[in-house]
Amino acid sequence: MIKRMFSVAAHWDDEAKVFYSESDIIGLHIEAKTIDEFESVMMDVAPGLVIANHMSKAELASAAPEDLIPAILWQRPTDKAA
């Protein structure tokens, strides 16, 4: 069965002055100066990375279309105002 739920959290690095990602999506590494930029990048690349890195060709060929749509739980940072 295809894993359908993934998580992404943004954390603030006070030294580098960027938001960075923590995620179970293989290949997702985001650093952004604003939370809006972070969110834009995440929405742009995360679904493609799920398909590329978490689904085999056999799963893509045999799965029902509704099983191919991942749920990405997005957690805005709580340690710095977004």
Score class of each variant (00 low, 15 high):
Phe19Tyr: 14
Phe19Met: 03
Ile2Tyr: 05
Ala52Asn: 10
Glu37Tyr: 05
Ile72Cys: 06
Ile72Trp: 11
Leu73Val: 15
Ile51Arg: 07
Asp36Glu: 15
Lys3Leu: 06
Glu59His: 07
His29Gln: 15
Gln75Glu: 08
Leu68Ile: 07
Val8Leu: 14
Ala61Arg: 13
His11Val: 01
Ile51Phe: 08
Phe38Ile: 03
Ala10Asp: 07
Lys80Ile: 13
Phe19Arg: 01
Arg4Asp: 09
Pro77His: 10
Glu59Gly: 12
Pro77Asp: 03
Ala16Trp: 07
Leu60Lys: 13
Pro65Phe: 04
Lys3Val: 10
Trp12Asp: 01
Ser21Gly: 04
Pro70Tyr: 05
Ala46Val: 09
Ser7Gln: 14
His11Asn: 11
His11Leu: 08
Phe38Thr: 08
Leu28Val: 02
Thr78Asp: 00
Val45Thr: 06
Met55Gln: 10
Pro70Gln: 09
Ser62Ile: 05
Ser7Ala: 04
Lys33Ile: 00
Met5Ile: 08
Met55Arg: 09
Ser62Arg: 04
Ala71Val: 05
Met43Pro: 00
Ala58Glu: 15
Ala46His: 08
Ala71Pro: 00
Met5Pro: 00
Glu59Arg: 12
Met1His: 15
Arg76Ala: 12
His54Trp: 00
Phe19Lys: 00
Val18Ser: 02
Ser40His: 08
Glu66Cys: 09
Ser23Ile: 08
Glu31Val: 04
Gln75Ala: 09
Val18Thr: 13
Met1Gly: 12
Glu15Lys: 12
Leu73Trp: 12
Asp36Lys: 11
Leu49Glu: 12
Phe38Arg: 01
Lys3Tyr: 03
